[in-house]
Design a protein around this nucleic acid. Structure first.
Length: 346
RNA sequence: UGGGGCGUGGCCAAGUGGUAAGGCACCAGUUUUUGGUACUGGCAUUCGCAGGUUCGAUCCCUGCCGCCCCAG
């Protein structure tokens, strides 16, 4: 009987994951990863609540329950990474880093060390022979967040929810199983900051100064309270009225300037190609010159793009120009249903 | 201080005698395990100010204030 350690966050998805595996005959142990516990002014960190929910479900399922404390590593690998990227003027994706560094590295290692044969999470994805495949439910597919997980880690991972046709089915399953978390609301936003906006979070760690908002004709048309808060394609929060909406097209951290356009078709907003850094390919790299499907943000539709390896860098040439391709964000490459890997926009 | 034009919510902007369109911004909500996007809803008892005409004025008249343009 295989021993599986299931990462239980206290949400429905991981609860169902644990329950299903147990039902399938695995020897399941629930593990709550304690990654972040700090409160922010006005926003208590929800970790305790989540912990209680996870524990509650473990008791219901009558499975062993453990807590792994990764706070130190999480702060370093995820939060510091995120802050550094923002300071550098890029827009990072901390959840991708969390999967790479914490869930599918630290957690996996600790679980194996504890005697586990496999780990499992409530991600909507499939894995076969250490390959990563899109979830059956295209609407919930979370492979975008998982492209940096290694082949070796995937070989020891189970994603039971990948076969579900919809989130509704997962909820039904949770109800059928009578899980305490069956009706718990889905979490959104960066996992560790909970309900807090990224803006409030960053404010705690960086000092910011007001600066100019400049349009494509070089005119200063407004003021912002810190370039770090803005990202490419952003519309809200600029406070500029009159005429058409404004979208951020770029920023200069040294000058503390934010650039915008009112022209939704502006070339500053639409990109036809980009280079990737820190690429990660799960089993093998793409064939240079071939066309694949890429995803430039979670839940964005797959877009055709040609991958070209030139001057030691992977270039992505989109079939159609894409909106708001943002440095620091990830582009994930798909070969039909399989995730080949991806990289970070330079 | 001669001529012309304008002043509608934070911004842009319709209306022009019958009781304030629309867009942007903003706020709220929905969607979303990143940022962001998108979607839905809310948002001027009031039209620079003061008088007058009228049953009734943002719309007509007078004066004042402010702004712009052309002449200078």
């Amino acid at each position: 009987m295989k021993k599986v350690y299931v990462g239980m966050s206290g949400g429905v998805d991981s609860s169902v994951t644990a329950a299903l595996l147990k039902e399938q005959g695995y020897e399941v142990t629930g593990v709550f990863m304690k990654n972040w516990t700090q409160d922010l002014p006005g926003f208590p960190c929800p970790w305790k609540e989540d912990f209680n929910d996870a524990k509650r479900v473990a008791v219901q399922l009558d499975i062993p329950f453990k807590v792994y404390d990764f706070q130190k590593e999480y702060a370093q690998k995820v939060v510091d990474y995120m802050l550094d990227e923002y300071r550098a003027g890029r827009t990072p994706n901390p959840d991708i880093m969390c999967n790479q560094e914490v869930k599918f590295k630290l957690f996996l290692a600790a679980a194996l060390d504890d005697g586990a044969d496999m780990i499992a999470t409530g991600h909507y994805a499939k894995t076969i022979d250490g390959r990563l495949l899109r979830a059956a439910d295209d609407n919930k597919d979370q492979t975008y967040f998982l492209y940096r997980v290694t082949h070796e880690a995937l070989q020891k991972t189970l994603f039971p929810l990948g076969e579900f046709a919809s989130k509704e089915d997962v909820r039904k399953e949770a109800k059928r199983l009578g899980l305490a978390t069956a009706t718990k609301k889905d979490s959104q936003g960066i996992c560790f900051v909970g309900k807090v906006g990224i803006r409030e979070f960053l404010s705690q760690y960086v000092t910011t100064k007001p600066g100019n908002i400049i349009d494509d004709l070089g005119r200063t048309i407004g003021q912002h309270d810190g370039a770090i808060f803005y990202t490419i394609g952003q519309r809200k929060g600029l406070g500029i009225g009159g005429g058409l909406p404004c979208y951020v097209t770029g920023k200069d951290m040294d000058k503390n300037e934010v650039y915008v356009t009112r022209d939704i078709t502006s070339n500053n907003l639409w990109t036809e190609s980009t280079k990737l850094v820190d690429v990660h390919w799960i089993t093998s790299e793409p064939v240079s010159g071939n066309t694949y499907q890429v995803r430039t943000r979670h839940r964005a539709k797959l877009e055709a793009a040609t991958l070209l390896f030139e001057e030691s860098k992977w270039n992505v040439i989109f079939k159609d120009k894409l909106r708001a391709i943002t440095p620091g964000q990830s582009i994930v490459v798909y070969d039909n249903n399989e995730v080949l890997g991806g990289g970070i926009v330079i």
